[in-house]
Amino acid sequence: MGFIDVHHHAIPPRYAVALRGSTPIPGVDYPTWEPELSRQLMDDNGIDAAVLSITAPGVHFGGDPARTRRLAREVNEYFASLLSDRFGAFAILPLPDVNAAREELAYAINELGLDGVGVLTAYDNRYLGEPEFEPLLAEIAERGLAVHVHPATPELKDLATFDLPPSLYEFTFETTRAAASLLFNGVLDRLPELKLILSHAGGTIPFLANRLTYGPTIGAYLAERAPRDVLASLRRLHFDIAMSANRYTLPSLAAFADPANVLFGSDFPFMPAATTEETVAGLAESPEWTDAEKTAIGRDNALRLLPRLAGRLQSMP
């Protein structure tokens, strides 16, 4: 098929150095990575190109803002050095500083030529639907850029003894929180051209979408905040199938999402090659979509969202 992998992580050398001595994602075995490992996975699984991104904790470690800006710049310049017919990249931004993020956005897109933007669901416990992020999202929408939304690690102080890695289950809820924040703060309707790609089949959004229509019933104050058509607003979102191409998750996603808004993802290297093989097989065997829709999910939908990557693929012999 020649898949396009929109959920594929990288750990640039300078980023790996910055993470030393920290616990990036509690309870998670942080992998080692180099481009050749990705190329091997891609070759073994029929993936033509992978769009690289940084996962949690991003580049903001709650410290010096200048360090956050510098690390974002170093990561984006490293990504630019890999741009080819095999690799695209989502620019990392030095959020939560929106002004610095807009400056880095201009540099990463205008000067470095990156393919889109990668953001986390929240920064300092402020979710993407909060008013301070809307000017940035509006500029991204105006530029027509795709935005890959990856879950962050929420504060778990109330679950300090739960002793399970948040990526095991909490990441799905984190994505749901971000989507609900965007929905009930009106961002999805004010920015209908915003091209958001939610990780892991949208967390629990497909399963809970109809429940979210009950907001004004549960709390009358939400009548002024809820979109006129909650489901239509949520269906403008895009969803990758990383860690989700199985008989339990895909039926819910397929029942909810427009197949034109579903994309292939591997979550490599945080998930091993076996999971990519599972995703390839799960998509192929899924009875939910036609063969033409599966081809679009595996490749065409991503190329439509990422025209720069599509251009690099077309230009290669």
Rank of each mutant, 00 (worst) to 15 (best):
F173T: 15
K195S: 09
P151S: 04
T161E: 14
A138S: 10
E155S: 11
L137A: 01
P154V: 05
S167Y: 09
N185I: 06
D158L: 15
P165Y: 00
L145G: 04
D163F: 07
D158I: 13
L168I: 14
F184H: 12
T153A: 09
R190N: 05
F184E: 00
T172I: 13
T161L: 14
A138T: 03
R177C: 04
H150I: 01
V187G: 11
P165I: 04
K157C: 04
T176W: 03
V149R: 04
D163I: 04
A141I: 09
T153I: 13
A141T: 13
A141K: 13
T176K: 11
L159H: 11
K195R: 15
P151T: 00
D158N: 13
L164M: 07
I140V: 14
H150T: 03
F162N: 07
I140Q: 08
A160R: 15
P166E: 01
F173H: 15
L196S: 07
L145A: 01
L183Q: 06
R177G: 03
I197W: 06
V187C: 12
T153G: 01
E142S: 15
L194G: 05
I197H: 05
P165T: 06
F184G: 02
T175Y: 08
L137M: 10
P192W: 03
T172K: 15
G186R: 09
R177Y: 03
Y169R: 10
I140A: 02
A179M: 06
E139S: 10
K157G: 14
P166F: 00
V147T: 12
P154W: 12
L156F: 10
N185Y: 09
N185L: 08
A152F: 00
E155C: 07
G186H: 12
F184Y: 15
K157T: 10
A180N: 11
L145P: 04
L191Y: 02
A160I: 14
L196E: 08
L137F: 03
H148Q: 13
A152E: 02
I140W: 06
E139M: 11
H148E: 02
L164N: 00
L168M: 13
S181V: 06
L156T: 06
G144F: 04
P154H: 07
